[in-house]
Structure formats: C-alpha cells, structure tokens
Design a protein around this nucleic acid. Structure first.
Lengths: 236, 236
DNA sequence: GGCTCCCGCTGATCCGCGTCAGGGCGCGCC
DNA sequence: GGCGCGCCCTGACGCGGATCAGCGGGAGCC
C-alpha cells in the first residue's frame, strides 16, 4: 500500500476525508494537519506491540479490531480498550507502553510516528488544541469507565457495552458486529465468560437483543437496553 | 518563563518551590511558568464546584482534602479522586465539570483560571510538553484504576488504597492520615463502608497495620501489604 | 471421515461482599 | 447533663457472580 498522506485515493473502507488528518482524533471532522502514516497488516491474535516497549508509534485502525490489554501477576488478563475501525490506540503510557496490543481479528492499521505527532503539535496551535480536547475526552471516558467497573451489575455492564459498541460502529452492515470473543468481552468488563454468555442469553430472552451468530447481534429495543444499562434513568 | 527555579516567597505550609509553578503539575520539580492563583478556604462538606457547571478554574490543594465525586441516577455516589495537599483537581471534563467537588475536611485551595493555563500552554512550549506528560500520566493512572476496580477483591483494594495514600502523603507527622470517612473510602473503592471497616480490621489483626484512631493509622509491614495488594507479585 | 482444539452455552455449587440490624463512641446542641 | 446524630464496628443472612463441570458445534488438520 502506498503512503496515505495525500488522500487522492482513500484506503478501501475508509471515508475519503480520513487520511490527511491528525492521527489521534477519533473524529476526523474536527480537522487537523497531515502526518505521514505507514500501513500494516496483522494476523488474528498477533501482537502489535508489547508491554514495556518504547512508545514510538500510534495507530489508527483501518479494518478489523484490536485489543489493548495487560496480563496481571495472578495470571488474569485485563483489556483496557477495544479499538475499532477509525479509532486510535497506542498512547498508553508516557515513555513506555503500559499495555500490549493484539489483533482481535485480522487487522489493517496505519502507524504514525510519535515524533511526527509531537512536531505537528508544536507547529500547529490548532492541532495542539485538538490534542488537548482529545486527551480530556479520553480522561473523561476513563472516569466513566471506572464508574461502570466500580459499581455496576453484570447486566448493566453488558448492556452498556453493547450500546457503546453500537454508538461507535461505522454505519455499515445490518446488525452489530462483535469481533471479539466472549472471553475478550469478559476481560474488558471485569466479568467471566460464563457470566457474559448468561447475560446475553438473559437479554435475548427479555427480547432486547437478537443473536444472529457468535459475532453478530441485533439491538431490538434500545430503550429498554438503556434502562438496563443505567437503572433510574429515563429511557430515550 | 522566568521561572520556577527561583521561588522568592513560598506560601505558608508549602515547600518554597511551589507557588509560581504550572498549576497542573502535581510534581513541581518538573518546572513550569508562573500563573497567578487565588487562595480560598472551604468548610468541611461544602461544595467547591457542581457537576455540570462550566470549567473556569482548576485548583491546587494547599491543606485539607477534597473529594471529586458524582451522584449516580440510582442514588449511589462514586468518588473519582481524592485530592491531597500539593495535588491538583478540577479538569474533569472538556467544557463542563462532569463531577462535583467537595471539601472532605476544612480545606485551603489555590484556584487558577483555566484561560491563564491555556494561554501559558500556547506561550511556553516547555509548559505544553509538561502538560502533555501530565495528561498521559493521568490517563495511565485512570487505566490502573479500572484494573483495580474491575477485578480486585476488597482486601486488595483497601491495601492498594493505603499504599497509594502513603506514597502520596507529604512527609510530616508520624503515621498515615485518612482524612476521609469510611463511607468516602467505600465510594472510592467501589465497596460498602461495612466492608471497608471489616477489611481494615482484618489487616489490623493480621499485623499489617495499626489503627491509631478513625483518621490515622500506621503501616507496620508494607511488604506484606504490597503482597495483599497484588497477589502473585514479589514483595519489595 | 475422524480427530483435536477452541469457543460458546448451561447447570450446580460455592463464596465474597452487599444488605440488614444492632450497639458503642464522640460531638454538638438543647 | 441529657439527648440526638453521625460515624464506626460487628454479626447474621442472602444474593450475585465466580468456579467447576459437562455438552455441543465449527474450524483446522491428518
């Protein structure tokens, strides 16, 4: 794949506006400057970077999905983030990666050099502002996340996760894609795979979702799902 | 930045290097520019800012302690952060506060205008770099936090909390100050006050801590405490 | 085809922590 | 002093989710 900075020819599956933007913005409509990117392809399950390695690049997902995770000393695994098409990952520490990243499915990424980003931030005041807003948003999301993990039931967590995925999904095929396994979902939500499975069955029996197959489902009643995700809040 | 290294007149109770620093750095040794600050005093339990209000200032704690929290729709409360002397809080959203802040004890703060910070970041490349590292660190801390909340037992959470407090405490009086109530600790750790109380008793009976009174205790065996905080990890 | 392996689902059991209840202590107020 | 209230501790009990176990289906490989 030739370089992507001039978006004369958009990569397959990406909106034409994407490549010349700041690599960190998940939402390209915000604007930004050109940073050269290098595409790469990763097999399902392969490691993209290791915990403890130096942070030299960040990545935007073109297709596929990526999990950012850490093995805990007791052998458990915790997933900090799923990166979906259009989203960015890789800045999970100051100097060194504090997590590892692995391809959940076969994935195509675009890698950006960190120093190019930093040079761009120094050069472009607008980019720096955008960066600032981006990090604040990420922090806010992290805070919401630990409210979820701190005091929510299994049903609330799973419902919340599905709604979140649906909100982030690119408009595309009918239904909601779940690229990751039940184990991945469990390690992301602080549950076990058994509980995730049981909860999905529960939501299905309650008529809120329909399960097409292991990696695709349909949200039938988002109103009740939202209520399941946050009891005490009015449904939209 | 005629700057930080020369600190002419320290505020009472603060290390001499503190006031003229970038307000956001928890660690002033990192350097930064002078931003004017305005001191204020808050009674125990009083609100410093409300959820949903515009973010116009950020705050550094001079003395006392502050909790940054949110009421959940189901009536529960969640505490996102305790700010101790020398630490900074108030940037908990992009435009609006997504949490409220309350004084845990009587507290003296220094407030900084957000626009002064932003002007400083635009003006001083060094300050902007420092800001960037600061936000990345905060993000990293948030990620560690949701690992803690996602898959840790009550004992691990409490032990971790005590060690964290000890690491952040200013060298001062003998023993470890716990300015907050058991309820505050519970809402921070995603537990109940009963469980916090029971767990402290457990650690005391195991000889890892000694409880002087409700708001002060002593860490007797940090090695075993660390092991209790992260099983499977060698004690230091 | 037949085997193995991984993944997902479901049932039975266990246990940690939430919940409920009661009692003690310190502090402020009448 | 006496009282009420907030905070803390402790015990009894129940529930939700982890754990353990078993089963079925699909993919890859021989």
């Amino acid at each position: 794949m030739p370089n992507v900075t001039r978006a004369t020819k958009p990569a397959p599956g990406l909106p034409p506006c994407l490549p010349p933007f700041l690599p960190f913005t998940d939402r390209p409509e915000r604007g930004g400057a050109a940073i050269p990117g290098r595409p790469s392809r990763h097999l399902r399950g392969s490691e993209i970077y290791a915990e403890g390695s130096a942070i030299r690049q960040l990545y935007r997902v073109v297709s596929g999905a990526v999990r950012v995770c850490r093995m805990l000393p007791d052998g458990r695994r915790f997933i900090a983030q799923f990166a979906l098409p259009g989203e960015v990952f890789g800045l999970d520490g100051v100097e060194e990666h504090r997590f590892s990243a692995e391809a959940v499915t076969e994935a195509v990424l675009i890698a950006f050099a960190r120093r190019d980003l930093e040079a761009c931030l120094d050069r472009e005041p607008l980019a720096a502002q955008s960066w600032q807003a981006y990090t604040l948003e990420k922090l806010a999301a992290a805070q919401d996340r630990f409210i979820l993990l701190g005091c929510r039931s299994a049903t609330e967590r799973v419902a919340h996760f599905l709604l979140d995925l649906a909100a982030r999904a690119r408009p595309g095929r009918e239904g909601l894609a779940l690229p990751m396994s039940r184990y991945d979902m469990a390690d992301y939500l602080g549950l076990t795979a058994e509980t995730v499975s049981r909860t999905l069955t529960l939501l299905r029996k309650a008529g809120m979702i329909a399960i097409e197959d292991n990696h695709r489902l349909h949200l039938l009643d988002t109103g009740r799902l939202m209520q399941a995700a946050e009891p005490g809040r009015a449904a939209a």
